[in-house]
Design a protein around this nucleic acid. Structure first.
Lengths: 225, 225
DNA sequence: TCAGCCCTCAAACGTATGTTTCAAACAGAC
DNA sequence: GTCTGTTTGAAACATACGTTTGAGGGCTGA
């Protein structure tokens, strides 16, 4: 088995368990027994549980980061000077995520769920790791968003980006469960690709909403700052 | 003092710690020492950690549930037969959340963060508890959404509701941090009420987006189901 | 063949967790 | 004041965790 098939088995098991149970709720013993590997192997190969978490993220985030940067390069070249539109920017991100080489059919939903967890579960060390390791493509995405929505005030854009992040992270991180529920309720099958195709127009429209706060009469007298 | 001020002190401490650290990452010892209460008090008054979690949710969800039902009653009465609009429905929900009596200034963000955690952290027992305890107002909200968007297919509506939930839960659950970041970056102050006022139009516009999936040429050949 | 290194294994370590125990303190009723 | 049921206190319980240890196995290069 070449050099240490153990490492990959651990990463596979950890990725799946982390995605479905979170980090704190997943013990090393669960991981090692799912991977059919000795308990000590994790600390031998990775050093600690924290380092294992980082390695799980790095395994898919590093190639994704490259793919995304390349896609942004293409996009900006194609637009030759003009800033890419909001839809183009969102699609490039979505497409890069979908096109990633996947280990199995659940690849993307695990990918998304892990990202959601990274945002959600406080895990200070993880946020620091992700920030200083993959902060660059993130900043670039932000810049593209800014150039694609020049009509928005900085404050409006700030909040709406948060709304987009939320809708995406939340939905994608539970995509498996949501797809199952949809099938049970309406008998309709869906895929992560289809969710993405529905999500992008939703986000783009929300982003372009009129910026006036239409406070209804019933709230007019209250403490809206 | 009255009868067991201990119970409330435990609930206060647990609520805050759960909100900022999650359930598994918060130990009973953290809770009892923050509450200045003996460790055994939790098991004495609540029976178990799971029951404590349920109690924390029940304390704010039960009055909120009543408030919301009353607000829906009012709304439907005012509309006399005609289904309430999407904006009305969303505003009634938002208003009910904002108007809830709050124990402190962080009331709403804790409220939202806990709801987000309930969705995110798998914690099977919690989902079951919430479903069978507060399923009714939730179903009613869903029905109102359905009547307010008759032009949407059931599948479109399903996914867009998830998107709305995500944007709301995600943003509101981190509202404190996001407000701080905004102030540091742009020197602008914000409030939870203002976030809500910005969120509702975003959601409403996204909800009304054209339902065609505008798959771009670059993705046309791939496996969009 | 044998030394050297990488890896695996079972077992144990120390710590932290949720829970239980039982004696002491307290309250209100008679 | 005494008695009864409720609440608190300090300590211990069993269990699970992440991590470390040291002996052993298997491969490689000389």
């Amino acid at each position: 088995m070449a050099q240490s098939d153990t490492v990959d088995r651990i990463l596979d098991a950890a990725e799946e368990l982390f995605a479905e149970r979170g980090f704190a709720e997943t013990s090393l013993r669960m991981i090692t027994s799912k991977a059919n590997v000795n308990l000590a192997a994790v600390n031998y190969h990775f050093g600690s549980k924290k380092a294992l978490i980082h390695a799980v993220f790095a395994r898919f985030l590093t190639p994704f980061s490259s793919t995304l940067e390349a896609a942004f390069d293409d996009l900006e070249k194609k637009c030759q000077g003009n800033p890419p539109t909001l839809n183009q920017t969102l699609w490039v991100l979505t497409e890069s995520a979908i096109r990633m080489p996947q280990r199995n059919e659940k690849g993307i939903s695990i990918f998304m769920r892990l990202l959601g967890l990274a945002y959600t579960q406080s895990q200070g060390h993880l946020r620091k790791f992700l920030e200083q390791e993959y902060g660059q493509p993130f900043s670039r995405f932000m810049r593209l968003l800014k150039e694609a929505t020049p009509e928005l005030s900085a404050v409006d854009r700030y909040w709406r980006i948060q709304f987009m992040l939320g809708a995406t992270a939340f939905t994608m991180s539970s995509s498996d469960a949501l797809i199952d529920i949809l099938e049970n309720k309406l008998g309709v099958q869906a895929s992560v690709q289809e969710i993405a195709a529905r999500l992008v127009p939703f986000l783009a429209e929300g982003m372009k909403a009129p910026d006036k706060l239409q406070v209804p009469p019933s709230l007019a007298g209250t403490t809206v700052a």
